[in-house]
Amino acid sequence: MAAVLKSEARAAVDAAARPNVLEGERVTKRFSETVVALEDATFSVPEGSFVSLVGPSGCGKSTLLRMVAGLIPMTSGTLAVRGEEVKAPRTDVGMMFQKATLLDWRTAVENVLLPTELAGRTTDADRKRAIELLHLVGLEDFEFAFPRQLSGGMQQRVSLARLLQTGADILLLDEPFGALDEFTRERMNIELLRIVDGIGATVLFVTHNIAEAIFLADQVMVMTPRPGRLAKVVDVPFARPREIDLITTAEFNEIVAEVRGILGGH
């Protein structure tokens, strides 16, 4: 199948029409004098776009996500979500961690309801939605299973459902399927795309896998380590929805080569 390229002009119009929900200006994080996790990262993320962060271990991907989530303060620079400076966790920003971090003493649906419970009272509508979300991530018949009764992939699905239950429309995903096998991961990625397209969410997605980063994203932020830097933002111009055989096309592999070149040059 030939990749369908959006014309350059069309892509530019798209991006211009959508406001940036996320803007970072010279974002820097130092953990100590010597440990510079992230230096001078400047970037912007338009509403509804899917942005991948790719780079080797230790280049500051998780650090960047945690700053956007308001979990850790930055050392210098400015970081704004919907024009407001990030100071603390926000309800419109949700984060999914590399580990599922489910609570072992709660059933799947009780885990999904956690964000609601922490925010206040749980209503009937919340319960209904939690069940619907579990169905959406493909967990019919497992609504009342405990995490220990679920496989790693199923636990990640619960974790994804929990993220969606927050109602956040800016989703930060830190290698969400990193621990899964290749097949499951591919399937989860395709489901993820379907889900985020459905709710029109903006996504920041961290991965080590270049092909995965490109397949999923509108933009790939390529990062390099020591000190952590945002080396380049690569546009991915393929139309959606995308089919998995996109990754065998020449256009796709050109972008893979470009990203690999940026990473290899460091």
Binding site: R66, A69, L71, M95, F97, T101, P115, L118, A119, T166
Partner: peptide, 16 residues
């Protein structure tokens, strides 16, 4: 600590 961070990202109060 991962779960603690998750609670923090959900804006959970100390009590909860």
């Amino acid at each position: 600590p991962d779960a603690e961070e998750m609670f923090r990202s959900l804006g959970a109060s100390k009590m909860r």
